[in-house]
């Protein structure tokens, strides 16, 4: 027994190194694919933002023309658009997102640096919460197919998917904050997890439902596959087949969902940060767009666009790692 195992192991190592090589090539191609998309995103949003009626220095009481001209000169807004565009790109190449046109004491990068820790904490904890609850729920539902738990999970998923977070958020704040006094209604204090619970749960709920649904569907598909039947026929235990053979391919739909999930988190966090008054980056987007704060809007578009693209990329890479057919197909 011992002797027969050795060649198998070396074969597996050889396969693993070839796999790593293929994965690297795949990753490199995908990363290269992100740059043009980002460039298109920057270009389109740059011109769309500037096409919108109004400007950053429009106020209820108009500024004296000389001051206005001075301001426009200071920020380079009196230049022709292509020149401004080029200057913006030059700044970006040096990692400079420019000054905020409204909050003139801050740079866009500085504002992002202030808000991002809060938004990231919120987003990551919601994602972790959704995965940690959604995956087991989906598995249980699939394994006890047709049973009470399965039906309960299906109903739970349908309802939570129909509940927008701007409804769940106030509800939870009302129930746990105002009526029960268990948790703070809103606000944020760094290092105080109590302030994180309600926002994270609200944000995670629809995500958890989607994950549970996908996990259930993926597991059901895999359990019907012939290799699972073969494994069972070889006399392997039920639990072993589920966890060692079925789980990995069944995770594929969940993993491909990670990209859209982060897109959801990005937009969801806008609402959550409004409902629970969190000092994250979400409010800058709305504020910036309303005030025609060109550089701030561009900074947020860039930030969220990059985040989404990177998470799509990460999802595809994990997918390729789980399912060899993907990387071979593109090789």
């Amino acid at each position: 027994m011992q002797r027969r195992r050795a060649p198998v192991k070396s074969l597996r190592n050889a396969y693993a190194s070839g796999k790593a090589f293929l994965m690297l090539g795949y990753a490199a191609r995908r990363i290269a694919g992100i740059v043009p998309v980002l460039l298109i995103l920057i270009t389109v949003s740059f011109f769309v933002v500037r096409l919108a009626p109004g400007g950053p220095f429009d106020q209820a009481r108009p500024l004296p023309p000389r001051i206005r001209a001075e301001l426009e000169h200071l920020y380079g807004l009196n230049q022709p658009l292509p020149v401004q565009y080029w200057q913006y790109l030059e700044g970006l190449a040096h990692g400079d997102l420019g000054p905020s046109l409204q909050m003139r004491d801050d740079t866009v990068a500085g504002l992002i640096a202030q808000g991002l820790p809060v938004s990231l904490t919120l987003g990551l904890s919601a994602l972790a919460l959704a995965l940690l609850t959604g995956v087991p729920l989906g598995l249980w539902a699939a394994l006890g197919r047709g049973g009470v738990l399965d039906r309960a999970v299906t109903v739970f998923a349908a309802v939570s998917l129909a509940l927008p977070s701007f409804v769940t958020g106030p509800f939870l704040a009302l129930a746990f904050g105002l009526w029960l006094h268990w948790l703070p209604v809103a606000g944020w204090q760094a290092g105080e997890p109590r302030y994180l619970i309600l926002p994270a749960v609200t944000l995670a709920l629809p995500l958890c439902a989607s994950v549970a649904r996908l996990m259930r569907g993926g597991m059901l598909d895999v359990l019907g596959a012939s290799f699972v039947r073969t494994a069972r026929a070889r006399g392997l235990g039920r639990r072993r087949v589920w966890l060692r053979h079925a789980l990995r391919p069944a995770l594929v739909p969940v993993v491909s969902y990670l990209g859209p999930a982060v897109a959801y988190l990005v937009t969801g966090s806008l609402v959550i940060e409004t409902v629970f008054e969190l000092p994250g980056t979400g409010r800058y987007l709305v504020q910036g767009a309303l005030n025609r704060d060109y550089t701030l809007v561009m900074g947020m578009v860039l930030l969220y666009g990059t985040l989404t693209l990177l998470s799509n990329l990460a999802a595809d890479l994990i997918h390729a790692w789980l399912d060899p057919r993907v990387r071979d197909e593109h090789a």
Binding site: L41, G259, A263, V266, T267, T308
Partner: peptide, 11 residues
């Protein structure tokens, strides 16, 4: 590859 509501929001 971009968040749908995000684009709607900006527009």
């Amino acid at each position: 590859s971009l968040p749908y509501l995000f684009i709607v929001l900006i527009l």
